[in-house]
Simulated scan of single mutants.
Amino acid sequence: MKIRDLRFTPVSVPYREPEHWAWGVREGVTALLIEVDADDGLTGLGESVPFVDLGYAVETLKVFKSLLVGEDPSNIEKIYHKLGALGYQHVVDLVFAGVETALWDLVAKELDKPLYRILGGAVREDIEFAPWLWIRRPEEMVKEAERFAEEGFNTFYIKVALNPKDDIERVKVLREGLGDDIRIRVDANRGWTPGEAVRMINKLEKYDLEFVEEPTAAYGLKMVKQSVRTPIASGDSASTPHEILQLVMERSIDIFSHIDPDLQGGLLNSKKACAICEMAGLPVVAHTGVDLGLGVAAILHLVASTPNFLYPNQTLYMRLEDDVIKEPFVFERGAIKVPESPGLGVELDPRKVERYHNVFRERGAFPAYGIRPPAKIERILPPRLWL
């Protein structure tokens, strides 16, 4: 089997309502749907989220196509290093992730097996998730969490580092409203200085947080971890296996919470990152905040085949207006079953792809990091940095 062609389609899928967080406001997800055609008639599917400029991503894919045609799609390690020689490693990783997923999809389809079977086999069959609660009035957040709890979710994420008083009030009301059996995590998106992080985490400790994610920038994580009793999760500042190894060796975190093929450069590198954490005794959490169905499918197969995913994983999937696959995933008791059909186990819906490609053409790409900065950051950084 040889690669015959590579095709891609940009789509923009809105959220049901905007998300407010420490870095601005997000209105939806823009992704590049990847299709890799083989000479035996099979097509592999993948999805890249262009955190980088969309134009860079598109031009990078054009270069990828010229280098991939004629290659054996099963030579994933060889292909990754061949494309990595282009330089700009993080850009290459972000764009390559969707291509690599499509290669895995092709290989698994040729073997007529679900992808997790060739990634190591099943450790688990149901993948648990933790939804984000949108920032709103505390009592409204409690009601939303109660609705999720009725559907079987028992762990929730909320964004903090917006306003200290409001952050504490939201966590307090959530804990009092939901009781002790529900797990609460907070994510500061590096919005605190190390000193602010220590002060805020100590104030929040009495509300029994499962962990605090990204309390500060990488340079301050070790100090924060040594100064608080609440577990510290991070990973946003470490993407490649080499960076993750350094973070783990520094013993700066308790949990690595950013296992994400988009950030690591594909499923193979994500497996390597998980192995590094496993050797250090660290659990991992999948970072799936801005994925459509193809990206979610890749995460399901990754988590199913990797032992140290010990916590429910991030998701915003239920926040999407719709999806581009024929049968969108359904949560059962807070979990999604791993597909059993060959490859990723999902198919694109041509009508939905066309619909959300038209949304992209009309509205453009939704910025991955939000459309405006929070006030306290805007006061520090020149406005041109937010263009």
Rank of each mutant, 00 (worst) to 15 (best):
A298N: 11
K272F: 06
T306F: 06
N269H: 14
E278M: 11
Y311H: 10
M318Q: 11
A298E: 12
Q314E: 14
Q314D: 15
D322K: 09
Y317I: 06
A304M: 02
T315E: 08
M279T: 04
V285K: 01
I325A: 11
A297W: 06
L320Q: 13
E278T: 04
N269Q: 15
V284S: 02
E321G: 04
H301C: 05
A275K: 12
L316R: 10
R319A: 06
C277F: 08
H287E: 03
L310C: 05
L268M: 14
G281F: 12
L302S: 09
E321Q: 15
D322C: 06
E278Q: 14
R319G: 00
N269D: 11
L320F: 12
Q314H: 15
I325Q: 13
G281W: 12
G295T: 00
N269C: 01
A297C: 10
N269A: 15
T306S: 14
A273K: 07
L268P: 00
E278G: 05
G295K: 00
A275P: 01
T315R: 07
Q314S: 14
L294E: 12
M318N: 15
C274N: 04
V290R: 13
V284P: 01
S305V: 00
I299Q: 11
E321R: 15
P283D: 07
T306A: 08
S270A: 15
P283M: 08
D322M: 05
A297G: 09
L268V: 05
T315K: 13
K272Y: 09
E278H: 05
Y311T: 00
V303Y: 04
L320N: 08
I325N: 14
A298L: 10
L316M: 14
V290K: 12
A275T: 08
G281I: 14
I325H: 07
A298H: 02
A273T: 04
G295C: 04
D291G: 01
A286H: 07
L300M: 14
T315C: 13
T288N: 15
G289W: 02
K272D: 04
S270F: 09
N308Q: 03
L316W: 05
V285E: 03
L268Q: 06
M279H: 07
H301D: 01
I299K: 10
N308C: 03
N313R: 09
C274L: 02
L294C: 13
